[in-house]
Each structure stands twice: as C-alpha cells, then as structure tokens.
Design a protein around this nucleic acid. Structure first.
Lengths: 101, 101
DNA sequence: ACAACAGTAAACCACATGGTTCACCAACAG
DNA sequence: CTGTTGGTGAACCATGTGGTTTACTGTTGT
C-alpha cells in the first residue's frame, strides 16, 4: 500500500523528520528540538511514519530511538520509476504514431 | 515543494488517477467512470493534482482533457534517491566504524 | 531516596479534507 | 431551436488531522 507512505511523507514536518533521520538515528527529543512543536505532537508524527513502514523505533531506557528503515523508500522508488516508464513508453507510441503520418 | 506532491499522491483515488493517466490522457468523465464517485468529487482531485504540478488540463469544447505532466515525478524520484543515498552512506560509515573496533 | 528528565496517554479543539447534492452554463447532435 | 451531455460553482456535511495542555509513568543521576 504505497499511498500510505505517500500520505506519511505528505506532511512537511514528517518529511523533515525523515530527512533528519536519513542522516542517522535520533531520539524523540532530538527530533522535537529543532521544531517549535510540543513533544507529544512530534511523537504522533513518528507513530504515523512507523505505521507507514518508513521508520522503526526502540525504547532504550527512557529514551526512544528512531531510525529510518533500510527498505523505507524502495516501494516509493519503484512505483515512481514504474509510472515514469509507462508514461515515457506512451510518448514513444505517440512518436511512432506521428511518424506514420 | 515536494511535500505537496507527496500529499497529492497520498490519497488512493488520486494515486489511481495518476496511474490511469500514466497510460495516456483522459477526460474528466473517463476518470470518473471506473469509480463510484460523483464527477465533482473527481474534478476536485484533478484540481489538487494540478496544483501539485503533477497534471495539466485543457478544455477542448465541453470536455476537459487531463494528462500527466512529463516532469511530473522527477522531483519525487530525485528526493527519494537523495535520501536513500544519504542513508546508505551513513550505513557505510557505520560499517567502517565497526571495522575500526 | 529524590529530583529531574523523556516519553506517553487522554481529552480536547480548530480546521482541512473528501465527499455529497443541486442549480447552472456551454457545447454538440438532431 | 431544442434536448442532452460534460463540466462547474456553491452550499453543505461528516470525519480525519495536526496541534495543544495536563496529568501520569518509568529512568537516571546525585
């Protein structure tokens, strides 16, 4: 279900979290620090990313460590490539069709 | 603003529209036909895709023709590739760090 | 043992979103 | 000219979403 991942990435704060996490793991507090938001709000976003299969979290002691999943973006990447391929082959079809005339 | 494109693709009906449009242009009615939705609803979705820069529409006579933009998904593709690159290089960093120990 | 700290749960709120229906306009087809 | 068809605008509605605050739990440093 790739639309769930798109929806998760559709929110700017969530997108920023992913970009942050691509640089390396971080605690929930680390993620909240650069923002003006409250910690609960950030943690809700993390939960959404987790549900979308983009992020995994583990709780070590009292801090929750968040990290980007290794396979996080493959579904997105493959879907995108697939649609681009379809669209470009259709362009080819149009090109040959124009040549026939 | 790539998050807008992600948000646009986050809705299942909108995603389906894009997949349909990748096979070739279609009228608003064509897009509404396979769904159970009303035409105004579909047209609202098309408008969202248009605002996100994924789709262009032209009105020929009384029918509105919708087509996928040629550069629709490049921003999405490049962003995804970039984050994947960042994440994988970080993994390399961790690998070398482990070797040092 | 205690105080401070990181996270969590719950209740709540404002607003955006996805959908409907109805009335209407413009373009064909006869 | 007239009826039908494709699309549009507006009003409206239910639900989801992004955020808050407050109160609480469990960990950690002293």
């Amino acid at each position: 279900m790739v639309h769930q991942q798109f929806a998760a990435l559709g929110d700017p704060t969530r997108l920023a979290i992913v970009e942050r996490l691509a640089r390396g793991p971080a605690s929930a507090g680390d993620l909240a620090a650069p923002t003006t938001m409250s910690l609960p709000a950030v943690l809700k976003h993390v939960r959404v990313l987790e549900d979308a299969g983009l992020v995994t979290t583990v709780k070590r002691g009292r801090v929750r460590e968040c990290r980007l999943r290794d396979d996080a973006l493959v579904a997105v990447a493959t879907w995108t490539a697939q649609q681009q391929a379809l669209w470009s082959t259709r362009l080819d079809a149009l090109g040959t069709l124009l040549e026939d005339m």
